[in-house]
Design a protein around this nucleic acid. Sequence first.
DNA 1: ATTAAAATTGTACTTATTACAAAGTTGATT
DNA 2: AATCAACTTTGTAATAAGTACAATTTTAAT
Lengths: 141, 141
Amino acid sequence: MKTSIIDRLQTHGIKPSVQRIAIMEYLMGHYTHPTADTIFNHLYPSMPTLSKTTVYNTLKLLAQQGAISEITIDEKNVRYDADISSHAHFRCKHCGSMFDLPVKRLPSVATGKIDGFVITDIQLYYKGYCKKCKTKAPGLC
Amino acid sequence: MKTSIIDRLQTHGIKPSVQRIAIMEYLMGHYTHPTADTIFNHLYPSMPTLSKTTVYNTLKLLAQQGAISEITIDEKNVRYDADISSHAHFRCKHCGSMFDLPVKRLPSVATGKIDGFVITDIQLYYKGYCKKCKTKAPGLC
DNA sequence: ATTAAAATTGTACTTATTACAAAGTTGATT
DNA sequence: AATCAACTTTGTAATAAGTACAATTTTAAT
C-alpha cells in the first residue's frame, strides 16, 4: 500500500512527490542497503525522466529528516536503509556482502562525555569475513 | 622513541620502511583522526619525495594488518586512528568536529547470528551536534 | 489564470581513491 | 663487491562518487 510510504515521508516532514515516493518505496521494499546508484538503476527504466541528482538529493533529505538511515560501513559508497529500528550491520571485507545484526542492547558510553551534545544517530558496524570467505582472512592461513 | 613505532609495525607483520615509519609516527603523535591527505600534507615538507600513493597504500596496509583503524564516520573521506583500543567516535554533523568516546562495554549482538563469521573489527559511531552547534540542529528551533 | 515557492533535471565540475608501469631499494647469495 | 629477485615507492593517468548550479518543470495557493 502506497499509504505507508507517504506516511513515512510525512511523519518526517517531507512533502511526498512522485520521485520521493518511488525512492522511499524502493527502500521499503528492498532492505538490501542499496547505494544511490543502485536505486537509480532500478528506478530509471520505469521512470526515464528521473535524474541521478534527484536520487542523491532525495536520499540526503530522507536521511537528514530521519526517514532512512545512512550507512557508511563501506568506504566506497554511502548505503541507505529504510529500517530505522536499532540494529547493527556486518560487512564482509572479502566479498562485500552485508547483513543486519540484531543488537540486544544499545551500547552505552560514559555519560558526561556526551553531556550537552545532541545525538541524532548511532551506528554500529562489524567488519570481518563471512562464512563463505573466512578462509580468505589474512592471518588465518 | 622510534622503537615503539617500529615495534607496532613489526608486531603487525609490517616491514618498517622510512615512509611507513613516518606515517605510523604521525598517527601515533596525532590522535586527530586525520585523512590520507592531511597526513601527506604534514609529512611532505620534510619528505619531499613522498608520494600520495604511498600514503594511501601504507594506510591501507596498516589498517589491513590491524596496526591502525579505519574510520568511516565521515562520508567524505576515510580517517585513520592509531588508537586501536576499544572506543567510540562522535562526529558533529554541523562543524565536522570529531571526539573519542570511551565505551563502558562493547555492545553485544545476539550470538548465533554471527556464528561462523570472523569479526576483525567493531566500529561504533555517534552522529549529531556538538555543544557549539546544537542550536543548528534541525527540528530544535 | 497568475504567480511564487519548491522540486527536478542535466551538465559540468570537484575530489578521493585506485591502477599501473617504471624506477628505486633491500638484503641475501655468490 | 657484484648480482639478482623480491619488495617498495613513485608519478601519472584514470575512475567514480558525489555536488554545484542554473534552467526548467511542477505544485498549490490566491
